[in-house]
Amino acid sequence: MPRPPSDAEFGELVHATWPSLYRTAYLLLGDHAEAEDLVQTALAKTYASWAKVRTIEAAPAYARTVLVNTAASWFRKRGWRNERPTSELPEGVAPASDPADRPTLVAALARLAPRQRAVVVLRYYDDLPVAQVAAALDCSEGTVKSQTSDALARLRTLLGEAVVPHTSGARHD
């Protein structure tokens, strides 16, 4: 069995990976407290699974995979709200003509269904290919593509075509 890391070694890993993991978690969840809980959970699972992780060098990628899997699990188990309340836009309205009136990207992400939000973050922030996103979310590649298409259409409505042009969505396919 590989030698588990010392507290000091694992502490260095936590400090090195925390900012990046936190940003992904925040984009996925849209809430600071939940993002912090998710990152702590992912790193705790990484610590507890050291027999699989084996080395400090492999730990960041392992933690990121655990984070995404855990978020997907939360979406399934916690009865995650399909849409998180925001004050920016009522339902079903046309995109604001004045760009200054449009919601921020984070607020717009919060208007997406959890899995749609996840595919957008994983594909366009974490730059994962469709196959990896499908594996992380435990769904088919076809589902990832259809969810991506739906998510981009919704974001286009919320943010305007300048941000999400009609031709979007082919990357990584």
Partner: peptide, 14 residues
């Protein structure tokens, strides 16, 4: 063309 979306995601994350 998702470069703009990707850039915005990184900017907001930063």
């Amino acid at each position: 063309m998702t470069e703009r979306l990707s850039a915005l995601l990184h900017a907001e994350a930063d």
